[in-house]
Design a protein around this nucleic acid. Structure first.
Lengths: 248, 248
DNA sequence: TCAATAGTGTCTCTCAGACAATATATC
DNA sequence: GATATATTGTCTGAGAGACACTATTGA
């Protein structure tokens, strides 16, 4: 006869009652970025309920252990509810967990950030919010006090984004499916809050092998500009050298 | 009289019963790295209980909402239990959460990695393990199947470490409090699995301003070598250019 | 033809790689 | 002095910045 302390794995799991331990509450928040009007914007919702009722917060919510198969599913579900977008660029940023960040309980949130082109978005308020808006972020400062620790999270996440722009092709996800190099450069400039040299910028992007000509031109300004697209199947490019931003 | 649906924040929180929602179970795992015998090593413990009883796993455990004030506290507590070290270099790597990664429940784990010099460590088995060991990692391959999804986590974490070594001064946390440049170079070489040019390496490290001479020498080989230390109060240095590893 | 915007030519600078050369200890 | 290890000198090359220059359109 097996001793009690060695019931075997299946038996152990069957008898395991998770409710006997007090556990933190887990949620997911996503910093949804887009660029328009020559500025970085973040999607915020105004909370419908306590705590922090009526305050603006990041887009997020609890993990629904029946609907969500993994963490990213939670992020995508909430993001889809608010924007109607299914497959944005989504990257896990960090996880914050502490006894004090939520007045109700020991709380964990895993923060993602999403990059998307605003043209694809149709904003929906949903049932956990009373309002939704794009908040303009200027000079890396967040002009509004958000619910929970979201102000802090947003600030550090913007720092991370800004930093990654120095050595990656991430901003490709903030322009449309086709774009001119000037448009792409503008996005880089907005994120870095700094003007870039056109020649260096184009050399860098074109030699990275992440974009290709569509053969079409964008008209409407003076000289028409070549339209590019992302090369299908390429991942984010990591440059060997940073953009040497003057203010760093 | 206030309507029921607007009791106010304090009242709302007082009446909030977290147990009515089914929640994921949250834990923290830490990939504890050190370098000796010209190889990267990771600390593993052999699990005392189901699930995955007797299998090797990363150092980790549940968040104790009464003892741990935040996520990093959990990581530090478990790390201290196993190594006796209080203040290693600790960096959050990623958070994995899914319905399937733990056979018992929807499970989340936040993964940290720690860098330390093995001389400071005194291994202790603790009460959730039956054994503990440094596992040698060769050529970025993990030679053992670990509990849960820890094999996968360890592999990707090693990739991240290796990558960060190309553009940061992280390996400073893998050498002793004083060290020679040759020792530091050796650690870089082990992590990158590649020999580096001494002149380039020294130029890079010395111009970064993160190390300083102690004035002492390390004897014992042929020509004595200058001993350096980390400059107090400096953070990890991010180089503007990567080490141009030949195999990438 | 002019103004505006797109796009190029080309010089310099910095820092990584390559590798020969030098320095300082023990034997 | 021979040898092993630490450390330096210096040339080359890639890719970033600077900036003047050319190209292509609409008005």
């Amino acid at each position: 006869m097996k001793p009690l302390q060695d019931l075997g794995e299946k038996e152990f799991i069957k008898n395991y009652d998770p409710a006997i331990y007090e556990r933190p509450n887990a949620s997911v928040d996503t910093v949804i970025y887009t660029v328009f009007d020559r500025a970085l914007h973040v999607l915020l919702v105004r909370r419908a309920e306590y705590p922090f009722k009526n305050m603006w917060s990041l887009v997020g919510g609890f993990i629904d252990i029946h609907r969500d198969s993994d963490l990213e599913s939670t992020a995508k579900r909430k993001l889809y509810e608010k924007t109607g977008i299914n497959t944005p660029y989504l990257e896990q940023y960090e996880t914050i967990g502490s006894k004090t960040r939520d007045p109700r309980y020991w709380s964990i949130t895993t923060v993602y950030f999403a990059l998307l082109h605003h043209s694809k978005v149709s904003l929906r308020i949903g049932d956990d919010a009373v309002d939704i808006k794009w908040m303009r972020i200027t000079n890396n400062s967040v002009p509004e006090v958000l619910a929970f620790d979201h102000t802090e999270i947003l600030k550090s996440c913007c720092g991370r984004l800004r930093n990654k722009v120095l050595y990656t092709s991430l901003p490709l996800h903030l322009v449309g499916t086709t774009f001119t190099l000037v448009e792409l450069q503008n996005v880089y400039e907005v994120l870095l809050d700094e003007t870039l040299d056109a020649k260096s910028f184009r050399r860098r992007m074109l030699s990275a092998g992440v974009i290709e000509e569509t053969g079409k031109m964008k008209l409407g300004s003076r000289r028409p500009a070549k339209l590019y697209r992302r090369v299908a199947g390429t991942n984010t490019h990591f440059f060997m050298r940073n953009i040497e931003a003057s203010s760093y």
